[in-house]
C-alpha cells in the first residue's frame, strides 16, 4: 500500500497559496479567495458525494454563512474576520444539525430535491425581507483583524491568507475523517446500506454527520465570500448558486481533499477569462469547456493528478 502524501502536499500547497496571497496582483488574490471559499463548499459536497448523496441546496448554508456575517455586522457592529469565520459555520452547522434529522432519511434524487426546496424557501424569505435590502442585499463591513486597520489591499490579502489557512485546516480534518472508520463507511453506504447496518453501524447517524460537516463547510465558504465581495444578497441561496457547486464538485472529482480547491480555482479562472474575453458568449465557452471535462475526464480533474502519480506508486516499493 502506497503511503499517504496528502498532508505534506497540502502543507506545500498552502505555502504556495500564502505566497500568492502576499505577492500576486490584486485580481489574482481576489480570484483565489473566491475559489477557496467555493472550494470549502465543494469539499463538503465531496463528503456527501462519497456516500452517494448530492445536495442541490448547499447554497442554503452558503447564504446562511453570508447572512450571519451581515447580521453580526448590523446587530453588534463586529467585523473581526476571525470571529466571523467561526460564527458563520457554527450557525450553519446548527441549522444543518436540525434539518439533518429530516434529511438523513432521504436518498438519491429525493435528497437532492428536498435540499433544493429548503434553499429556495430561504431565498423566498430573504427576497421578502425588505429591511435586509431584499434582492439588492446589503454591504458587509470591511473585515478587521487583530490590530489596526491595514488598508484595503492588505485586508484583501490577509483575508485570502486566512482563507488559505482555513482551507488547509478543513482539508486536513476532512482527510482524517475520510480515513477514519466513519469516513470509510461512505463507500459502503453508497454501495449497500443494509449491509452497513448489519455490521452494526447507524447509516442514519453517519449521513447526519456528513450533512452537518457539509453545512459547516458551506457556512465558512459563505462567510469568506461575503467578506471578500463586501456585499451579500439572496442570490447566494438561489438554485443556480447551488448548481455551480455541484458542477465544480463533479469537475474536480472526489479523489482527494485537495481536488475541490483545484476544481474551484480552475472554474473561477475559466469563468473570469470567458467573461473578459468572450463577453457575448461566455455561457457557451463555460458550458463547452465543462462538457469536454465531463466527457473526457469523468473522474474529475483530480484523476489527471492520480494518473501522473501512478508510475511513482509502482516504483515506490522497490
Amino acid at each position: 500500500m502506497s503511503r499517504d502524501r496528502t498532508l505534506p502536499g497540502l502543507a506545500v500547497a498552502t505555502l504556495v497559496l500564502l505566497g500568492v496571497a502576499a505577492a500576486a496582483p490584486g485580481w489574482m488574490v481576489f480570484t483565489l479567495v473566491v475559489s477557496l471559499a467555493q472550494g470549502l463548499v465543494v469539499l463538503g459536497l465531496m463528503v456527501l458525494w462519497r456516500a452517494g448523496l448530492m445536495s442541490f441546496g448547499q447554497s442554503l448554508y452558503y447564504a446562511v454563512g453570508g447572512y450571519t456575517v451581515g447580521l453580526i455586522n448590523i446587530q453588534f457592529g463586529l467585523s473581526n474576520a476571525l470571529l466571523l469565520v467561526l460564527a458563520a459555520p457554527a450557525v450553519a452547522g446548527l441549522l444543518a444539525f436540525l434539518l439533518g434529522f429530516l434529511l438523513a432519511r432521504y436518498r438519491d434524487i429525493f435528497f437532492s430535491m428536498l435540499t433544493l426546496a429548503f434553499a429556495m424557501i430561504l431565498y423566498g424569505v430573504l427576497v421578502k425581507s425588505s429591511t435586509l435590502g431584499s434582492t439588492d442585499g446589503f454591504s458587509i463591513l470591511t473585515p478587521s483583524f487583530l490590530g489596526p486597520h491595514p488598508g484595503p489591499d492588505a485586508t484583501q490579502r490577509l483575508l485570502t491568507g486566512l482563507a488559505a489557512l482555513i482551507a488547509l485546516l478543513a482539508a486536513a480534518l476532512v482527510h482524517r475523517y475520510l480515513k477514519s472508520t466513519a469516513g470509510h463507511l461512505a463507500t459502503a453506504i453508497r454501495d449497500n446500506e443494509i449491509r452497513v447496518e448489519y455490521l452494526g453501524y447507524s447509516v442514519h447517524r453517519a449521513i447526519h454527520v456528513k450533512y452537518v460537516l457539509a453545512g459547516i463547510l458551506a457556512g465558512a465558504g459563505g462567510a469568506i465570500v461575503a467578506m471578500a465581495i463586501g456585499h451579500i444578497d439572496p442570490e447566494m441561496a438561489y438554485w443556480t448558486t447551488a448548481g455551480e457547486f455541484v458542477f465544480v464538485a463533479i469537475l474536480a472529482g472526489a479523489g482527494s481533499v485537495a481536488a475541490p480547491f483545484l476544481g474551484a480555482i480552475l472554474f473561477v479562472v475559466l469563468r473570469t477569462y470567458a467573461a473578459q474575453y468572450t463577453p457575448h458568449l461566455w455561457h457557451m465557452v463555460l458550458g463547452g469547456t465543462l462538457l469536454l471535462f465531463i466527457v473526457f475526464l469523468p473522474d474529475g480533474v483530480w484523476s489527471l493528478f492520480e494518473r501522473a502519480c501512478r508510475p511513482l506508486k509502482r516504483r515506490a516499493p522497490s
Binding site: 455561457h283 457557451m284 463547452g288 465543462l290 469523468p298
Partner: peptide, 20 residues
C-alpha cells in the same frame, strides 16, 4: 455513467443552448 454526471452534461448543454 453516474446520474449526477449525466445531469451535469445536460446542464452544460443548457448553458451552451442559452448562447445559441
Amino acid at each position: 455513467r453516474d446520474a449526477v454526471l449525466v445531469l451535469l452534461v445536460t446542464y452544460a448543454v443548457f448553458l451552451i443552448l442559452d448562447d445559441v
